[in-house]
């Protein structure tokens, strides 16, 4: 019976309907197409960041583009210590780790191991919540220091840069009077928009993962006979990680 239907299936023309030319389900293909469109959205935002940054000119009222190391140098619990890039590296690590647990859930789904899928989904959800908490803390610190969507108090003067460069990694650092002035507004605005848009994707991913976790626990996929929904949720979750790679590169490293 199986051989017969397989032969009949193979005889059908590839693009005449009734079979999948890409050997992939409709839902998964559409998830890929959605992710492609989302990649365009994020790249347009990042390209705009690049355009604003490289066309920034020093005027009497605004300074040059701020060095990210001068701003994102805080770590929770270590107030006033100059630790550039450390916290955001921890955030990157959390997101990579939750990506691994997600792909382990997909792998467990291939073996139809319901309990393992549920366990790895829990780890993934916890990773997502941890990342969102880190981002909330970072936003709160940045806002507390005076950044707004329409206002940026991170124009760093020559004196400020001299002060900053005299401080080594892990040393105590506080801004002195005259270190900072009004900076380019698009810096703060694009930081909030791009990391906010990414954070909203992470939030949606966590919600999707929670729904998929509940469906796993209730045995929906077991009855359906396959765990493909985990793969679709996984594609979305890995895409969020992929976007973070580029946000990390363009906002924090360069």
């Amino acid at each position: 019976m199986a051989n017969h239907s397989e032969a009949a299936f193979e005889q059908q023309p590839m693009w005449a309907g009734g079979r999948s030319p890409f050997n992939v389900s409709y839902g998964k293909l559409m998830m890929w197409i959605f992710l492609l469109s989302d990649a365009f959205t994020f790249s347009s935002l990042l390209v705009q960041y690049g355009a604003q940054r490289f066309s920034n000119v020093v005027t009497p009222v605004t300074t040059k583009w701020p060095d990210p190391a001068s701003i994102f140098n805080h770590f929770p619990g270590l107030h006033g210590i100059h630790l550039p890039l450390l916290f955001v590296s921890v955030m990157t690590f959390i997101l990579i780790l939750s990506s691994v647990t997600m792909v382990l859930a997909v792998e467990a789904g291939h073996r139809k191991a319901k309990k393992e899928v549920a366990r790895y989904m829990i780890y993934t959800i916890l990773g997502g919540i941890a990342f969102l908490s880190c981002q909330a803390w970072e936003w709160a610190t940045f806002i507390h220091e005076g950044a707004r969507l329409n206002h940026n108090f991170f124009g760093i003067t020559e004196q400020g840069y001299k002060h900053l460069h005299s401080v080594k990694f892990g040393q105590h650092f506080e801004w002195a009077a005259g270190d900072r002035t009004f900076g380019p507004v698009p810096f703060a605005a694009l930081f909030f928009i791009v990391t906010g848009f990414h954070g909203f994707h992470v939030f949606s991913g966590v919600v999707i993962n929670v729904i998929v976790y509940i469906m796993t626990r209730r045995g929906v996929f077991e009855r359906r006979g396959h765990y493909e929904m985990i793969e679709k949720a996984g594609l979305y979750w890995h895409f969020v990680d992929l976007v973070w790679v580029f946000v990390f590169t363009f906002f924090y490293l360069i």
């Binding site: 079979r19 999948s20 050997n23 992939v24 389900s25 409709y26 839902g27 792998e107 291939h110 073996r111 359906r224 006979g225 396959h226 493909e228 793969e231």
Partner: peptide, 13 residues
């Protein structure tokens, strides 16, 4: 799922 054609998947470890 007959209209969805879920391809068979295997674990690759």
């Amino acid at each position: 799922d007959a209209i969805n054609y879920i391809p068979h998947t295997e674990s690759h470890g």
